[in-house]
Design a protein around this nucleic acid. Structure first.
Lengths: 140, 140
DNA sequence: CGGAATCCCAGGAGATACTG
DNA sequence: CAGTATCTCCTGGGATTCCG
């Protein structure tokens, strides 16, 4: 089996965590893995797409458009592993597999929405900041 | 100049956005870039670290511990480009550069904290879900 | 001190082909 | 249909070195 994306952030060659000196870093260390999944392009797309009910593999693949079946599989595995998504196999022929947000997954939608609202609210600000930055850079 | 991490998510070989069929995907497309920066390991660390006031380059490097100067530079550039962080050069000898959260950057702390709180609140749930998942997998 | 430039490699991710 | 298995290409990112 290929190495599953484990979302466990641990700097390679890093000392022991329990001996961690930085206070905020400790809390950060808990948050980082979650952010990493949430921040992931495909995982987010999937959660969004599953927001309005369960979908089967091929439905997801078609809905998300641009995702390869490989990344869909891997991302779903990651979300399933994190307990965000449940996977239900119906062993008919041909087989049918449905994915659905778990309670945990659904509870995630709220804070993510908060962040999404922030993003939408400030997207213009960010865009223009980027433009200004790029212009100054081009001038140089 | 090396290609700056532009945080602009656009599937390669993707059709035109304006013709996009999916409604929620459109909003998602705005949110994704932001999430991608927010979800970024180092960028988050930096924002966290800058939460309590401005810091200079070497302070950040020491505070974050594990980051390479390359990634620190690149991440700071990204944050600066997005208007989250301001960069102030004091041309003394030796030179001194201070980084500070902008208003935009500070406003980001709140929704991020919401997400962080969610993460902390559910981290046990996630961890145990991961353990269960891994055990079932080992059994197979 | 704060970077920029270069080298280099492991891991991320697409395309394709095969299977239960 | 819903994956798994390869193969391959490409980028992210560490280490190191040089510059103002």
């Amino acid at each position: 089996m290929e190495q599953l994306q484990d979302s466990t952030i641990l700097s390679p060659g890093h000392k022991d965590v329990t001996a961690g000196p930085c206070l905020q870093t400790a809390g950060c260390r808990n948050v980082a893995p979650v952010l990493n999944r949430v921040g992931d392009k495909w995982s987010m797309m999937i959660v969004m797409t599953l927001s309005d009910g369960s979908k089967r593999f091929s439905e997801l693949k078609r809905a998300i458009d641009g995702i390869s079946q490989r990344m869909l599989t891997l991302s779903l595995r990651g979300l399933e592993r994190d307990g965000m998504v449940s996977r239900t196999v119906t062993p008919t022929i041909p087989p049918r597999v449905d994915y659905e947000l778990t309670e945990l997954g659904r509870s995630l939608r709220e804070p993510v929405k908060a962040l999404g609202d922030w993003a939408i609210k400030h997207i213009d600000c960010i865009r223009s900041a980027q433009r200004r930055f790029d212009e100054r850079e081009d001038a140089a």
